[in-house]
């Protein structure tokens, strides 16, 4: 009785998804290290974009949400939506801190640590 609605994801598809994920990991690792010159500002959107694609692949195929009941997707999406709300409103405050002009935009600093230029890597 259970078979009727349960989608069995074919093995070749699972393998293809896995290989795509590996490829994307290599791409993100390489672009993350590379100097993109004038396009350096793309580092963050690129890293997050690839991560979103990878996560979507896992959710849709490994977790089978593509073939699942819509209500399960709804639960997951509402969760993500709330993360967006949390992030957006908190950052909204952070980015405009001190806009009345009577407050420092940054939090009160703790004991001042002497700024030392760090050697990259170790």
């Amino acid at each position: 009785m259970a078979h009727a609605t349960h989608h069995i994801i074919p093995r070749p598809l699972l393998l293809k998804v896995f290989l795509t994920l590996v490829a994307l990991t290599i791409i993100t690792a390489l672009t993350g290290q590379a100097d993109l010159g004038v396009f350096n500002f793309l580092h963050v959107p690129l890293a997050i974009g690839i991560a979103v694609i990878k996560a979507s692949l896992v959710v849709l195929f490994f977790m089978g949400l593509k073939y699942d009941r819509p209500v399960n997707a709804l639960a997951f999406i509402i969760g993500l939506l709330m993360v967006g709300v949390f992030l957006a409103f908190t950052l909204l405050d952070m980015l405009y801190r001190g806009d009345i002009g009577n407050l420092s935009p940054e939090p009160i600093r703790g004991p001042q640590i002497e700024q030392v230029e760090a050697p990259a890597g170790h």
Partner: peptide, 16 residues
């Protein structure tokens, strides 16, 4: 969407 109304005088930005 409204939690910031507890923080009007806590140093939250006026925009928020």
């Amino acid at each position: 969407l409204v939690w910031g109304h507890h923080m009007y005088v806590a140093g939250q930005s006026a925009t928020a």
